[in-house]
Design a binder for these strands. Structure first.
Lengths: 135, 135
DNA sequence: TTATATTTGCAACGTTGTTGCATTTGAAAC
DNA sequence: GTTTCAAATGCAACAACGTTGCAAATATAA
């Protein structure tokens, strides 16, 4: 999976910032925060450019936003590109990493009549094995 | 249920800001944002005081934070005071209100060995009956 | 009424995120 | 390779959010 192909397929211009973000998210083994991504970029981009790139990539369903908390957001490759289904996320309060919980079932929400769903998010917080001392 | 009693029971000082926030959250029929609460307060408090009151009330399990999105947080009376169990929340993308989904089951997360849970949050986004045009 | 630990308000600061605008650049056409 | 033009970038400015340190005010307990 190449950043270039992903951008071309969506008729988005190939720019350094976009390619960099996509490459990093593709090769990451877990969801990353904006700063974690920024630190891994080989080149420096203006804050504005960086934010705008995220917005574009989100809108085009290339990356997916995982809201852990206000002021704490992580990004991963969109489900449509990973061919993963909707899944929950675990956040370790100590080491701050995020892990996909592929086994945990996302419930079918029971909504009042007339309500429609566009998105669902399930966040589990706690301590991972290394931080809980239970490993 | 009185704000005074809630504060006394936890040995917290009864201050205007704390009492005001608690009173508003008790009488609200849905989760409110900080600004919605601020607007309903009869007195004005400094931003710092307001934030610190929230922190204290959260820490003492009087109010509960519902993270809708980064930059959008709502508060409701803590489950321990409402005697409600853990429940999901619905957020209407159009009218921005939050509704408790008491019927929707919160799944038991399946975690790797050694992982522990402290908190779980299930947010459903979409359109309510009034905004979806399906009512 | 007094004493004291807590809370408040203010000033200052840092982060996050957006907008407008001039400049630069990617991609397509020639 | 050169030209063209819409789109993306970098910069400045701005607004909201959130925290910290500190002096002054205040709630509670003695």
């Amino acid at each position: 999976m190449l950043a270039i192909d992903i951008l071309n397929k969506r008729r988005l211009k190939r720019t350094g910032c976009r390619e960099g973000i996509i490459d990093i998210v593709i090769s990451a083994d877990r969801a990353l925060s904006e700063n974690e991504i920024k630190d891994r970029l080989t080149e420096n981009y203006d804050r504005t450019t960086f934010y705008r790139s995220f917005k574009t990539l989100k809108k085009n369903k290339i990356i997916r936003k995982i809201v852990i908390d206000n002021q704490l957001v992580k990004y991963e490759l969109d489900n449509s590109l990973t061919r993963k289904k909707e899944h929950a996320h675990f956040y370790c309060n100590s080491c701050k990493f995020v892990k996909c919980l592929d086994e945990t079932e996302i419930p079918q929400p029971i909504l009042p009549d007339g309500f429609t769903i566009s998105e669902i998010g399930l966040i589990v917080k706690g301590e991972c094995d290394k931080c809980s001392g239970n490993n």
